[in-house]
Design a protein around this nucleic acid. Structure first.
Lengths: 246, 246
DNA sequence: ATCCCACATTGATCCTGGTCAATTCGGGGT
DNA sequence: ACCCCGAATTGACCAGGATCAATGTGGGAT
């Protein structure tokens, strides 16, 4: 049940003149979406708080209801966030991609469990230290609040998907949503890479693995997409988007 | 499509020596759950920004995707928050009770539509003015951020309900969840008052009105509850909670 | 009181997606 | 090459909840 976690050498020399909005392979801290709120001095201060680590596939980052000690920023790989019911049913509440924060709630305990689907690289912050840093930078807190409300908006969209859409619409909106998120972090492609298993997709969409499989097959048969190893290529994006339309 | 909104006389004389955490019938501002973060001087400053209004049953507070001009704090009544699909299907993403904030996302546009189920009293703040006030009070922003993440947590719990629970479990968790929220704002009772229609409950739980009705009838037949005018009385709270168990 | 109308309940039937079961596929190890 | 094992696909059947339709109920207007 304990995260099998490998802390990478801290590489304390990784100083860099990173500009706001720019990515930098040397910096430990690469929170793509908040750096706009920080100047380079602040980024370096944040960098000093960061620890890099790597999580192997299937290893656990944190577990629901356990004390929240750490804030994570993903630099590489995909993480699934989920809740379990007592009888073992699982609902995946989201997939976290590079650039995303985990544990931002700054609550005492984690609200859900998280584990690595692929090999995942993160930088970690002590929740206490991160909170203190935040107290010094109200504009950063503001930015983070915007993040949290964006997450809320995503969650509400997913409530619509879970409550009011057919299996085919669910799968279509999943594919389109994932493609859009990947595009926003720079991975543009007609082929949507699916790091997660069919079971993960099913548990995200409130379906069974068989229904996901059948639905993808049917969409392939109807020339909307082709199933390729490790993902799906959209042949008729228009038609898929129409199904996903909100 | 425009909110039929009646602005009540502003009652500018409503000054009071309200203490943190205390409720006050005279103050315009009674944001039950944030006042802990404000001293009485700050509360008076916030009070000066507030405008009271009343919304008639079925009137609209705001509409999804329209420019967000106003932040609301509910002082009385129940509001439904929902998203519509192009074909008219509706998903209610939450019910807002007295003490709750609406429009807190501080985003440019509202993420969902909101309308009054009963007669609703609110106090309104200009989003701009509220944002400026927030910039002066980082600790208040912090509090608000905690709120937003609590909302997120509620939304994720609801995702589990929508994706992984049977009709009976959905209805049970709705009743228990509502009862708990009412208890937290001081309305403790074995009878859960249901201000919302069966259609509203159905659209919240991802069911049809018929299934909600049948499920309540069955639970009544099995002596778990009695259906009373305007609500439901739990006869066997233990059994209902067991169905709702997370 | 009576009518009206929206809301709620109940019943009969249908259909989407779940369940159970049998293959098939694909990657890794020897 | 071969086997192995977990993941995915496909098929046959089932059931929970949706749909369609009829009936009941309660509050407001006249």
């Amino acid at each position: 049940m304990i995260a099998r976690q490998t802390t990478v050498q801290t590489d304390g020399s990784a100083q860099c003149g990173m500009h706001a909005g720019e990515r930098c392979a040397l910096c430990k801290v690469r929170p793509v979406s908040i750096c706009a709120a920080l100047d380079s001095k602040e980024l370096c201060a944040l960098d000093a708080l960061a620890q890099q680590s790597v999580f192997e596939p299937k290893s656990t980052l944190f577990i629901q209801d356990e004390p929240a000690s750490t804030v994570f920023n993903i630099t590489e790989g995909v993480v699934r966030l989920y809740k379990l019911l007592p009888d073992g049913r699982r609902q995946i509440v989201g997939f976290a991609l590079p650039g995303d924060f985990l544990g931002l709630a700054m609550a005492d305990r984690y609200g859900c469990s998280a584990d690595a689907i692929e090999t995942v690289r993160v930088c970690r912050f002590s929740r206490i230290a991160f909170g203190a840093f935040l107290d010094e930078k109200p504009h950063l807190l503001r930015r983070l609040h915007e993040f949290a409300t964006h997450e809320l908006s995503l969650a509400q969209d997913q409530m619509v998907v879970l409550g009011r859409r057919s299996a085919e619409e669910k799968v279509a909106s999943f594919l389109v949503g994932l493609q859009n998120r990947l595009a926003r972090i720079g991975a543009v492609s007609a082929t949507v890479p699916l790091a997660m298993s069919r079971q993960d997709i099913a548990d995200f969409l409130g379906l069974t693995i068989e229904t996901v499989s059948r639905t993808l097959s049917r969409m392939a048969r109807e020339k909307m997409l082709v199933i390729v190893p490790g993902g799906v290529r959209l042949l008729d994006p228009k038609r898929v988007e129409a199904l996903a339309a909100r």
